[in-house]
């Protein structure tokens, strides 16, 4: 953990200070090259469907050992705390940890390059063939299945709210505000994020 913090600090050009209560320690695993970072995130991007995080964990923690399990969880907590797509933030943070901005760029380029090319190709096919009846019907089935998958995701992340009336009230308010009243998201977050924090009583 100490090494993690030190490298993160050095990544933004600040030198570790004794006041933070840590010092540099010998690295337990070799620091990856920029090409290795690019390659690892390219693999995560191209092999990950739906959720790429489990794949990222397996590759970075178990196979390459660039991070310990605790370091991975910690870095992921940062990326989930901040706005933006979590895995992209993760690539930024991990690449930056090793090589500063150049590392972030290498990791993000690896993560997004292939998938963006594939999805543009799919988009071009969609534009060309969407009016062919069999394709249109196939897309309708695909869209229905995709909607079902998002519904399942919602139910899964809703499970921890059971027995927490404050949390349920905030979730219901968010659905009303967004799905029924179509209010802008900044307004919804401005009101409901503080409400969620104030009403959160995990052990009550």
């Amino acid at each position: 953990m100490n090494r993690f913090v030190s490298v993160l600090v050095t990544a933004v050009g600040e030198s570790p200070r004794a006041g933070y209560g840590f010092r540099m320690q010998p690295a337990p695993s070799p620091i990856p090259s920029r090409a290795a970072l690019f390659g690892a995130f390219a693999e995560i991007g191209m092999l990950g469907f739906g959720g790429v995080l489990p794949l990222a964990r397996r590759l970075i923690v178990e196979r390459r050992r660039w991070l310990s399990a605790a370091e991975f969880t910690d870095l992921l907590a940062l990326c989930q705390f901040l706005p933006g797509p979590n895995i992209v933030n993760f690539a930024v943070a991990l690449g930056g940890r090793f090589y500063g901005a150049a590392g972030s760029l290498a990791a993000v380029a690896g993560l997004l390059g292939g998938p963006v090319a594939v999805v543009i190709g799919l988009g071009a096919l969609y534009g060309r063939f969407a009016s062919v009846p069999a394709v249109a019907h196939g897309l309708a089935g695909l869209a229905a299945a995709a909607a079902g998958l998002v519904l399942a995701t919602a139910l899964r992340i809703a499970a921890p709210l059971r027995g927490r009336p404050g949390g349920i009230a905030v979730a219901v308010a968010a659905v009303l505000a967004v799905a029924v009243l179509h209010l802008p998201l900044w307004l919804v977050l401005l009101v409901l994020a503080p409400a969620g924090v104030l009403l959160n009583r995990p052990h009550a």
Binding site: V150, L151, T153, A154, I157, A158, P160, L161, R164, G166, G167, I168, A169, V170, A171, V172, A173, A174, V175, A177, V178, A179, L185, V188, L189, L192, A193, G196, V197, L198, L199, N200
Partner: peptide, 11 residues
């Protein structure tokens, strides 16, 4: 505290 908001948004 943000979890319930996220649940509502994904729903």
């Amino acid at each position: 505290g943000l979890t319930p908001v996220t649940v509502g948004l994904v729903l």
